[in-house]
Design a protein around this nucleic acid. Structure first.
Lengths: 204, 204
DNA sequence: CGCAACCCTCACGCATACGTAAGGGTCAGG
DNA sequence: CCTGACCCTTACGTATGCGTGAGGGTTGCG
């Protein structure tokens, strides 16, 4: 909604859909003959908005070698092509996958230093393959925690039947809970552990 | 297997199962009449080993108010009761759930400042309930990434049929891939984004 | 008593991924 | 030409969760 007024080179004219489109354009220097399609360039702010990142983050990606502007305007404004959008989203996803920016940088380096295309892809594949396993482990771990949470919530349900006048210290001797199942760790950890005279384990 | 020799107060004698048990004991000062059960005290190193944390981490937990030794030896050694084990494991789980130590501290404070037991439990419940939803979101997110990884790997499989002499720059014009499905974002981001004259989106 | 194995209290260090402020140009409509 | 909305570079700041010494006691078997 932030009304854009005067753009140097990349324009928006739409009403909010995908940012920019327009008439004026600036083909970047460098002698790249390209098909038409959509070669309007984007400013850093456009990239930021379109990807949900901050301008600072985009700059940061550049600092660590993850992104390079396609060109610069006369006034040294960074100008990006649309591939930059893919790149930034890609960075975000890999980051979500738990890769650090420097690890991502290594992938980029690997790719760029590689001459053989399938060779490069093969290494990327290895990284992805390994990440896939890690992600599956993480999922399993989270599902574990999920179950623990559910169990704890069920356990804590019983507390609703407790007398509100009861003091927390009395929990140690509580006998409202189902004796057949142990106290979930997520519950056990709350009590005790701060030195105060405590130690009973399972309320009996 | 680090042989323990001279312990101040908490002993081990077992053969590796659960750390400690023994004969000598030191009931902590403070006038806590307790049932027998298992009130031998543990040193910080014991807690560390039993929980997989480092001694420094245990100290750190204390620094931020998450854990307090049950007592101190004459020589100022920290002595913990078994509840500390639960507490440390609990901290670890909550941390895995994405809570920061200070957030965990808030839970502890909430608990300790609370007089009404069910009231306190109710607030803990709320936290857990919310965490449960977050965890489920995280799982969904990871599953999304998992699918993207799988799709990308499938896509990259095709690259194996590519001529190893092919240059990475040629990927732009690659036509080996199934034209019916789009290039996964995890693949698209690799190419382009570093300014070099590029911009074709889907290899045609 | 001697010694190994532990523990204690500072207190600075570190890696990540930006946040944020400072001081100062650039762009294009009006 | 003016102006508002943007952008640039430089550079220090921040929050987390411990890591890593430094310098120096404590414990208790033998």
């Amino acid at each position: 909604m932030t009304t854009r007024h005067h753009l140097p080179v990349a324009y928006e004219h739409g009403t909010g859909g995908s940012i920019l489109s327009g008439t004026s354009r600036t083909d970047a220097p460098g002698g790249c003959a390209e098909a038409e399609e959509d070669d309007r360039l984007l400013q850093v702010g456009d990239i930021a908005k379109a990807t949900g990142k901050t301008v600072r983050a985009i700059h940061h990606y550049e600092e660590v070698g993850l992104l390079t502007p396609h060109a610069r305007s006369k006034g040294r404004y960074r100008l990006y092509d649309h591939a930059a959008l893919s790149r930034v989203r890609w960075i975000g996803k890999l980051h979500d996958l738990g890769l650090s920016l420097s690890q991502i940088q290594q992938i980029v380096s690997t790719w760029e230093a590689s001459s053989s295309a399938p060779g490069a892809m093969s290494r990327i594949r290895d990284v992805y393959q390994q990440k896939l396993e890690e992600v599956r482990e993480q999922i399993a771990h989270l599902e574990n925690l999920e179950h623990e949470l559910v169990a704890s919530l069920a356990y804590l349900d019983t507390c609703e039947t407790c007398d509100p006048a009861e003091l927390v210290a009395a929990c140690t001797n509580c006998n409202l809970h189902d004796k057949s199942k142990a106290e979930p760790e997520l519950v056990a950890g709350i009590r005790g552990g701060n030195g105060h005279c405590r130690q009973g384990s399972n309320h009996r």
